[in-house]
C-alpha cells in the first residue's frame, strides 16, 4: 500500500502521541491504552484476512486465546519464564493451529468458511472451558511476565509498567510494518488478486488455496502474538478470550476502523475501546444492548468505517491496489 502524504503525517503523529502518552496520562489510562494497542495488533491481523485476502474468518479469537493459554501453561507458578522460550512456543502453537484449521477451511468459500472457522474456534473454547487443569471456565493466571535477558543480564523489565507500555507500542509499530511489507511484496499482490477475483487469479496460474492458507497462518500467528501480549497485560487467560464474542468483537473493530487499510483496525480498536467505556457508563447493566444497536448502525451507515470517512475527507483514494 502506498501511503498518501496526509495519511503518513497522521500515522507519524499518532505514534508520536502514543509514545508521549505515559508522560502525561495517568496509570489507569496507560493500562487501557496498552489493551487497545493489543486489540489493534489483533485487529490488524484479522484485516489481513478480511480486508486483503477476502477470507471472512469468524474464529480468529482461537489463535489469540490459544497463544495466551500457552503462555500460562509454560509459565511456572513461582518464577518467570524466559521470553526466548515462551514467545516461540506461543507463536508456533498459534501458527500450527492456524495451519490445521486453515487447511480445512480454505478449501471452502463463502458461508461455509465463516461457519467452519467459527465451529473450530468453538471447539477450542469448549476444550479450555471444560479442562479443569487449566482453570475451566474461570481461566488461569499468569503470575509472572516473561523475563527478557541475555546470559543472565536483564535487558527489559516487563513488570515495569512504562517498559511494558513501550514494549507493546513497539510491537504495534513492528506488526504494522511487517504487514505493510508483506502486502507490498509479490505475495501481497496475489492475495489482493484473490480478494478481487479469485477465479481469475487461479486462471492466471496461481494455486490460490496455498496463498489463502499462508495468509491464514500469518494472520493466525500475529493474532497469537497479540494473545501473548494480552496474557502478559491481563495476567489471566479465560475461555472467553477464545470464544465467539471475542471473534465478533475483533471483526467489529476491523469494520468500524475500515477494513483493507491496516491502520483502520487500529483506529477501530481505540474507537471501540472508548465507546465501550462510554456505553458502560451510560447503562452499566445492559450496555451490550447499546453496542448491538451501534453495530447495526455501522453496518447500515458506515460500511467503510472510520478510515473510509478519512479518505472521503482528504479525498485521496488509496492507489495501492
Amino acid at each position: 500500500m502506498t501511503h498518501s502524504r496526509p495519511l503518513l503525517a497522521f500515522l507519524i503523529l499518532a505514534v508520536g502521541a502514543l509514545a508521549a502518552f505515559p508522560i502525561i496520562g495517568d496509570e489507569f489510562y496507560q493500562e487501557l491504552v496498552i489493551r487497545l494497542m493489543i486489540m489493534g495488533i489483533f485487529a490488524m491481523s484479522l484485516d489481513l484476512l478480511i480486508g486483503f485476502t477476502g477470507l471472512i474468518s469468524f474464529g480468529h479469537a482461537a489463535f489469540f486465546g490459544l497463544s495466551g493459554y500457552l503462555l500460562a501453561i509454560v509459565t511456572p507458578e513461582s518464577e518467570a519464564v524466559s521470553i526466548w522460550f515462551a514467545l516461540p512456543v506461543c507463536l508456533l502453537g498459534a501458527a500450527l493451529a492456524a495451519l490445521v484449521i486453515g487447511w480445512f477451511s480454505v478449501r471452502t468459500t463463502g458461508i461455509y468458511f465463516i461457519m467452519i472457522t467459527l465451529a473450530f474456534a468453538q471447539m477450542f473454547y469448549y476444550y479450555f472451558n471444560e479442562n479443569q487443569d487449566l482453570g475451566g471456565s474461570d481461566g488461569i493466571f499468569i503470575f509472572y511476565k516473561p523475563s527478557v535477558a541475555i546470559g543472565g543480564f536483564q535487558i527489559l523489565d516487563l513488570n515495569n509498567p512504562h517498559t511494558f507500555y513501550y514494549f507493546v507500542l513497539v510491537s504495534l509499530v513492528v506488526s504494522y510494518l511487517i504487514l505493510s511489507i508483506i502486502l507490498k511484496a509479490p505475495f501481497g499482490q496475489v492475495i489482493r488478486g484473490i480478494h478481487a477475483n479469485e477465479a481469475r487469479t487461479r486462471a492466471l496460474g496461481f494455486n490460490t488455496q496455498h496463498y489463502k492458507l499462508v495468509s491464514f497462518v500469518i494472520a493466525g500467528t500475529m493474532a497469537g502474538f497479540a494473545g501473548f501480549l494480552e496474557a502478559n497485560a491481563g495476567g489471566i487467560m479465560s475461555p472467553a478470550h477464545l470464544g465467539w464474542h471475542e471473534s465478533g468483537t475483533v471483526m467489529m473493530v476491523v469494520i468500524l476502523g475500515g477494513m483493507g487499510t491496516l491502520y483502520g483496525p487500529v483506529l477501530g480498536a481505540f474507537a471501540m475501546g472508548f465507546l465501550q467505556d462510554y456505553f458502560q457508563e451510560l447503562w452499566s447493566d445492559h450496555w451490550l444492548l447499546l453496542l448491538g444497536v451501534f453495530v447495526i448502525a455501522v453496518v447500515l451507515f458506515l460500511p467503510n468505517g472510520i478510515a473510509g470517512l478519512f479518505s472521503k475527507f482528504t479525498n485521496k483514494k488509496e492507489d495501492g491496489k
Binding site: 511484496a185 505475495f187 492466471l204
Partner: peptide, 19 residues
C-alpha cells in the same frame, strides 16, 4: 501484473516489494 508475476518460480515472496 498478476499474470506476469505468475511466471516467477513462486510468488511466496514476502519481503522485497513487488515493484
Amino acid at each position: 501484473w498478476l499474470g506476469a508475476q505468475s511466471r516467477m518460480s513462486t510468488s511466496m515472496r514476502f519481503f522485497r516489494p513487488a515493484k
